[in-house]
Design a protein around this nucleic acid. Structure first.
Lengths: 149, 149
DNA sequence: TAGTAATTAAGAATAAATCTTAACTAAAAA
DNA sequence: TTTTTAGTTAAGATTTATTCTTAATTACTA
């Protein structure tokens, strides 16, 4: 399990090795993403960082996230919501998606990770990654629903 | 394995039971989706149907797909592309996504379907569905790449 | 077959994301 | 430290996907 300092060191090394400057904005955007478990959108990251970096433009957040994505530092999470959502790439995990509130929760599944792929994928191409997406209603939504009635 | 006639009959029954009129547009949109293996976007469905229904508006395609989605006849496929993509709900399957050309290919994985979920999901909420998403480069992209060099 | 309520078409409107340009700022190199 | 260079900002225009509005049309009902 990597410490935040190690992760930040890797981030800095990756930027440098690709000739990218370590700007205040890049550091803050990456750190914010790293510390969030909420898979935020570009907009919500911008909102969150606005207090510390009052001149930060939405455009910079979009641009920076796209750059990080290309370096493999950040992943765009597949959702069916209109806004793209992001996460820092740290470990192999999967997603639980609440259909009610839109919350995304990470979970781990070692058995799946170490399992082979089915025959039906033979010859389909070159495989890079496999992930599980679970849909349902999160505990919090279930509880608040109960209290309403 | 349901025949297309059976599927269409189920479609009509579902519409009727929800008080939805069986309009020409609804039938054509559903049939087109049913016959496509490409998980088309609303836009490409509209383009495809334009020849047969010259006055079909994009809005109708969007609206109709949203209606079908609510009835459980159609599923919105999660991708990170900006356009939403759709499929008719027929059987349990999973998706291979080509990162190069954006193609989505269905595959089946019975072992996964019958497998239990990991402990890490205990207490997360009420689970409705679990799916695998595999990323990579499809055979066709691999081949065309080889021919280039 | 006429009535009516749902549905559609067309175009306007909205929202997310990206582009443009010029002026400015900060990081890395010399 | 100074210079070079890449990156950022601002503001507005643009693009793309989707949704809304309104008036006309159409499928089902009586």
């Amino acid at each position: 399990m990597a410490t935040e300092q190690q992760v930040m060191a890797h981030f800095e090394a990756t930027c440098r090795s690709h000739g990218l400057k370590l700007t205040h904005q890049r550091l803050e955007i990456y750190r914010a993403l790293l510390q969030s478990a909420e898979h935020p959108s570009a907009e919500s990251l911008h909102k969150q960082l606005e207090t510390r970096l009052p001149t930060l433009s939405p455009d910079t957040v979009y641009r920076t996230l796209a750059t990080f994505e290309q370096l493999g530092l950040v992943k765009r999470v597949e959702t069916m919501s209109s806004q793209a959502r992001f996460e820092a790439v740290i470990d192999q995990h999967h997603h639980f998606f609440c259909d009610q509130c839109g919350r995304l929760i990470d979970f781990h599944w070692h058995l799946f990770d170490t399992m082979g792929l089915p025959e039906s994928l033979q010859g389909i191409g070159k495989i890079r990654d496999k992930n599980v997406v679970v849909h349902g209603v999160c505990e919090q939504c279930l509880t608040s629903k109960k209290n309403e009635s």
